[in-house]
């Protein structure tokens, strides 16, 4: 809990009501986002995302380590994994298949919060999207004639890598409701004044891939529907911004 005086609280709430937040942003403006990819050489793919003072790192690897705090990881799972049947998932799971029904890649995604100044879920979502587009899975060549019942032999190439199609990976937009209005990309100060928040993940087609209400007071159903349409609108800009940042980061990485 942040120690804010009554005056500071009023200042934050009043600013949001007037569409001018304490750092000069409008309600639906994100902080500047910076993306770096390929920062962890040991992982198959990795990215660092900064949004103001919030900084997170995501890595993708064949085998994983620690888990995120439950709430964040469950929310991310909900946004990325889709339904139980695999429909609506962020990544085409069939691209992980080496031999159908027998061998597949297990992807482990680890997120690390370096510094937290609000809006962690959106930042982690962005970092994962960047890390996935940076990920190369080694090409696996199946030894021919191993189609019998025995364990097939797989030769994993060290040089050839397969890239994922990450165009379907959604972005996460968290709308934080303060007073009567809602804002995107809330800082920790603003989050302390929230009455409720809804995280919505939207893909490029404008379809909702996941939604979680994150605590707080109840909301009228019509407000939720309005939030969904606002999130769709905001996500278009965010996806474009992220894609250009990711492309720039990858170009940087190749140069160096």
């Amino acid at each position: 809990m942040l120690g804010l005086s009554l005056g500071e609280k009023q200042f934050i709430k009043g600013g949001i009501a007037q569409d001018l937040r304490s750092d000069g942003r409008k309600r639906l403006t994100y902080r500047p986002i910076s993306v770096e990819t390929g920062i962890i050489p040991q992982a198959s793919g990795s990215a660092r995302v900064r949004m103001g003072a919030t900084e997170v790192i995501a890595s993708v690897k064949g085998r994983g380590g620690e888990e995120l705090s439950t709430e964040l990881s469950v929310a991310l799972q909900r946004c990325l994994l889709g339904g139980k049947s695999g429909a609506g998932a962020a990544i085409d799971l069939s691209s992980l298949v080496v031999i159908e029904g027998k061998i597949c890649w297990d992807l482990y995604i680890d997120g690390l919060v370096v510094s937290s100044d609000g809006n962690l879920l959106d930042a982690l979502g962005a970092a994962i999207k960047a890390a996935l587009s940076n990920t190369g899975i080694p090409r696996a060549n199946v030894a021919s004639g191993a189609s019998g019942d025995g364990q097939p032999e797989v030769d994993i190439s060290d040089e050839e890598f397969l890239q994922f199609d990450t165009s379907g990976v959604p972005v996460i937009v968290t709308l934080t409701k303060v007073g009567k209005h809602y804002i995107v990309d809330a800082t920790a100060e603003e989050e302390s004044q929230m009455s409720s928040a809804v995280s919505i993940s939207v893909n490029r087609q404008g379809h909702i891939c996941g939604l979680t209400k994150r605590g707080g007071a109840g909301l009228d159903p019509s407000i939720i529907l309005d939030m969904i349409s606002v999130a769709k609108h905001v996500s278009e800009q965010l996806i474009n911004k992220l894609d250009s940042e990711i492309a720039a980061a990858e170009a940087d990485e190749e140069e160096s």
């Binding site: 909900r78 994994l81 889709g82 339904g83 139980k84 049947s85 429909a87 609506g88 809804v198 893909n203 379809h207 909702i208 891939c209 996941g210 939604l211 979680t212 209400k213 007071a217 109840g218 909301l219 009228d220 159903p221 939720i224 529907l225 969904i228 349409s229 769709k232």
Partner: peptide, 30 residues
């Protein structure tokens, strides 16, 4: 549930007509 393509769970206060929790998984149109 084990075959579902997506799920939507809604908790509400019916008399107050307010949603206290809503979670959606899978791909949904508006």
């Amino acid at each position: 549930e084990s075959y579902q393509d997506g799920s939507l769970m809604l908790s509400c206060m019916p008399s107050k007509y307010e949603v206290t929790q809503l979670t959606i998984t899978g791909e949904w149109s508006t």
